[in-house]
Amino acid sequence: MIKEVGAQDMTPLLQVNSLTKMYGARIGCKDVSFDLYPGEVMGIVGESGSGKSTLLNAMAGYHAPDQGEVIFDTRADGPQDTLKMSEPERRMLGRTDWAFVHQPARDGLRMSVSAGGNIGERLMAVGGPHYGEIRAQAADWLGRVEISDSRIDDRPSAFSGGMQQRLQIARNLVTGPRLVFMDEPTGGLDVSVQARLLDLLRGLGREMGLSAIIVTHDLAVVRLLADRLMVMKDGHEVESGLTDQVLDDPQHAYTQLLVSSVLQV
């Protein structure tokens, strides 16, 4: 049984405080703050240019923010500001407790390396087990993301878009990260492939107790994947809360506009 969580007894896994990223005079994202608790999945939605991807990249350390803190509850030393970490420390975090699922998938894969090699690379980077064990784990993970292990020696360039995305997810999750950043995880995929991927992500998230931050413009995707939602506009947070509450009873004018603009099938 999962225990009910009290209000005070938990340290946030991630605390983002007043994070700001400027592009010259133009706002990328401004003064964004939130706490993410272990096991929580947060969606960030907004139109193109709303700052959601900028925020994701600033949190993950890809773009240096101008101001703010990104405090992660590390296994060894407890809460640490990742923006003040040394480059090797941050790189280690990126290979162990953090994962980043890119869009498109090929940005997060090594296209010249086999599928098995793509999965094994992260294990080797953390001084993983010997070759046979790595290959066995790679085969296991291919199975978990529903790719036949007969494809283990094929390069991802021979895979479909949906398979590449599943491979990227396997490559990211193999080291058992505690926090996953995802940029449009279902972007660019056929709707038939999207549904399968959503089911897979929900299952893996539940089994592994993953915390995740998912950026998407697709409100249907966040409804199915995210516990809570942040709505962004012009680099600012306009509204946040429980996902279905924000979508079904939006309080802010912009969120109301966003929700009422979705096309019905």
Binding site: I2, E4, Y37, E40, D227, R228, G241, L242
Partner: peptide
């Protein structure tokens, strides 16, 4: 908070 509603 959302996480407490979700646990409920």
């Amino acid at each position: 908070a959302p996480r407490h509603i979700i646990a409920r």
